[in-house]
Design a protein around this nucleic acid. Structure first.
Lengths: 207, 207
DNA sequence: AGAGTTCTGTACTGAGTTGTCAACTACGGC
DNA sequence: GCCGTAGTTGACAACTCAGTACAGAACTCT
């Protein structure tokens, strides 16, 4: 018995995420957010509790998407596990897309992982941001570890390698590619890094 | 025949760097800089051309320190090259120190590489920052590659590995450790990542 | 010791920022 | 068709910020 919302919550959070990823948190004003989302100032405060609220909810949405995407991209039959790891590594070269159907931003610094950007910018001064970012990373690491185990079952990765350690190393490399890319290194260089990382995965002895 | 400066330029730039690394560029006001450096507003503008000038010169100083430190930490006799690589990897766990004699900031997000933080925050919107960050990374990669070559000469790394590719991979891992650390993962986790990375270096066949 | 030049710090300005508020609008039940 | 509820809007006030200008202080060379 009241007026319904005239905007789509997820659509607004996507637009906000894109803005935050492009100009950073402190580099984004509420007016910028308002322009990016099409919502008025008041609505932003009423629905999301202002700039900081928008950030937290956008990050939560990002976490939810990641928690769905990573396992989906990495799960599957044991035979394809190694190839899925390779593809996931190479996916980092082009950055983390905003949504499944939206290509990553053209400029590389804005294409970096949302959680990583915010963690590095707001870091210790914002425990909630830090916690969400950590959760994002853990989710990806878990999915990677599962895929490593699958590859081990298929005999593509050395059985004595610790899947969790390897997963965190892969996560680190992926996030590192983001950073090196943001500093302006060429896609060719990033591809070469991803390829080197893949080549170094511990294979079973001989064949 | 005029009044000399009453401050030490490098000291001021160090203080500014610490401030930028702690609160980010857009999160730092000129007043913050003034308080951190002890300089008045006027002096900051006269000597460094304002906030942006301070940033660029602080980054240049960082680059100079890195260009000196990395080769120094990685150069040496061929026998110790592999161990030097191991140490350099593990150094990333505690973050990048502000100066040789100053320990890294206690909070992990502020301990991350200055160039990486600024590149990710200002990224594409500031070509000069991007260029300096890229230069920092290239300098480290070059030093790493030299050390890899030394390790190869000593038979500790597979001779068919491309030293440049390996160097960039190591750089990526080091920067990735920064990011994973900034998200709040424990030093133990970071150490484990560094150890895994080292263990995966391509060794010569057999022994 | 004096004069000139450079450094230093504070006060000021205009632009931009955040968070709030009151009026307005639209929709669903009665 | 009216009314209450909740969403929306634009404007407003307080504040912060970057950058400038000016006046005073300090030092060196003569």
């Amino acid at each position: 018995m009241a007026r319904p919302r005239s905007f789509d919550r997820d659509h607004v959070l996507h637009a906000a995420e894109r803005q935050f990823r492009t100009t950073g948190y402190n580099g984004t004003s509420v007016d910028d957010l308002s322009a990016a989302t099409g919502l008025g100032r008041g609505s932003l405060y009423a629905a999301f509790d202002g700039k900081h609220g928008v950030l937290l909810q956008a990050m939560t949405g990002y976490f939810a998407r990641l928690g769905q995407f990573a396992p989906q991209a990495l799960a599957g039959p044991d035979e394809g596990a190694l190839e899925r790891l390779r593809r996931y590594l190479h996916r980092a070269v082009n950055g983390v897309p905003l949504a499944d159907d939206v290509p990553p931003a053209p400029d590389r610094a804005a294409a970096a992982c949302f959680a990583a950007k915010m963690a590095l910018e707001l870091g210790a001064s914002d425990p909630e941001v830090e916690r969400t970012a950590k959760a994002c990373f853990s989710a990806v690491a878990t999915a990677l570890a599962e895929c490593v185990r699958a590859a081990q079952r298929n005999g593509d990765i050395a059985p004595d390698a610790d899947p969790d350690d390897l997963a965190y190393l892969l996560l680190t490399i992926i996030r590192g590619i983001d950073v090196v890319g943001a500093a302006g290194h060429s896609p060719a260089r990033l591809t070469s890094i991803a390829e080197s990382a893949f080549a170094l995965l511990p294979r079973p002895r001989h064949r």
